[in-house]
């Protein structure tokens, strides 16, 4: 059973009077519990593709199915509900909510998106705080912790809702090498524990090597697929 299925999807933008073909004729399938990377230079379409998979945008052609749902058919409200239930996001700039503490940032989607009861929220937040080794920092605000710690919090926030898929757009771009490795290994460890599919984009060759399946994009077209680990899905 495939978690994601893209069948000849494309994405065109209109910039003024010029049509920009951001993605062209892309097809792939990703199975659950995969650890996948989309790589390519800037402007190759990595972020656009992640946005389509994350239901933040819609393909202009082709069919994209995520978790058995044709995401092209979802309206704004349904997209938000679908994302809240199935997808976690990790951003390059961490995008933590500055007025909330570490604890509250992780709790945010459980409260505002999934409306879980207090006891369940507490259990989940504490579990993920421990998972990303941030229990000691739980009462700090984002501006009181380092970049690596922020990304750990972002990972915990993305996973707290038990999503089937976590999308990370250049999650290590703003981190030093050592922290970047730590973050990627943390993502991989949590994938192993939770069997959540992780898809991240990067142009850092050292980080790329950590992915088990690597899709290469150039000028909006899928150029290749590389499976690094035997038995990987995809």
């Amino acid at each position: 059973m495939k978690l994601i299925s893209a069948d000849r999807i494309g994405k065109d933008y209109q910039v003024g009077e010029v049509a920009v073909h951001a993605l062209k004729d892309i097809s792939f399938e990703i199975e659950p519990a995969s650890f996948v990377s989309f790589v390519g230079p800037s402007g190759s379409g990595k972020t656009t593709l992640l946005n389509l998979i994350g239901c933040l945008d819609k393909p202009t052609e082709g069919v994209l199915t995520v978790a058995d749902t044709d995401v092209s058919a979802l309206n704004r409200r349904a997209s938000a509900a679908f994302r809240g239930k199935n997808i976690g996001f990790i951003f390059q700039d961490f995008n933590l909510i500055p007025v909330l503490t570490v604890y509250e940032n992780i709790e945010y989607p459980l409260l505002m998106v999934q409306s879980l009861p207090a006891a369940e929220r507490k259990a989940r937040v504490e579990r993920f705080l421990e998972g990303v080794e941030m229990t000691g920092q739980k009462d700090k605000y984002p501006d009181q912790i380092s970049g690596g710690q922020k990304q750990r919090v972002a990972i915990a926030r993305a996973l707290a809702t038990n999503p089937r898929l976590v999308l990370a757009d250049e999650p290590t771009a703003n981190l030093d090498s050592a922290t970047a490795y730590t973050v990627i290994n943390l993502m991989k460890k949590l994938r192993d524990e939770l069997e959540t599919t992780f898809i991240f984009s990067t142009h850092d060759p050292k980080i790329v090597g950590e992915a088990e399946i690597i899709y290469t994009l150039t000028d909006g077209a899928l150029q290749g697929r590389d499976v690094k680990k035997e038995g990987s899905h995809g």
Partner: peptide, 16 residues
């Protein structure tokens, strides 16, 4: 705006 984008991406319903 970016903060709004983040909470919307996470799945916060528009009414909230």
């Amino acid at each position: 705006i970016r903060e709004i984008g983040t909470i919307a991406a996470i799945g916060t319903p528009p009414r909230k």
